[in-house]
Amino acid sequence: MSLDPATLAAILGMTLATYLCRAGGYWLFRQIRPGRTMRAALAYLPGTLFVGYVAPGLWSGGPQAWAGGAMTVAAMVATGNVGVAIFAGTGAAWLVWLLR
């Protein structure tokens, strides 16, 4: 158990930068009222953000990621439960990985 000054400074920097992102985006939009187009864009943001996150991983992940992704969607549609969907999807990916 030790705390190194430079490591502490780096952790502090990361913490401040991350909080700036978390709070800054909301703060900024409270100062500038978004117009209609901006509000429409914000409504699309949740979906597009996660698509942007998963697309490269699915693309490069090969058959195990494709099977896992399909199973995750199917389980989520069937049960509506995120935990079940994650387990089913990861299980399917694992199965394909074992069968390679």
Partner: peptide
């Protein structure tokens, strides 16, 4: 990845 896919 599955966590984000299910949230979609």
């Amino acid at each position: 990845l599955a966590a984000f896919i299910s949230l979609l």
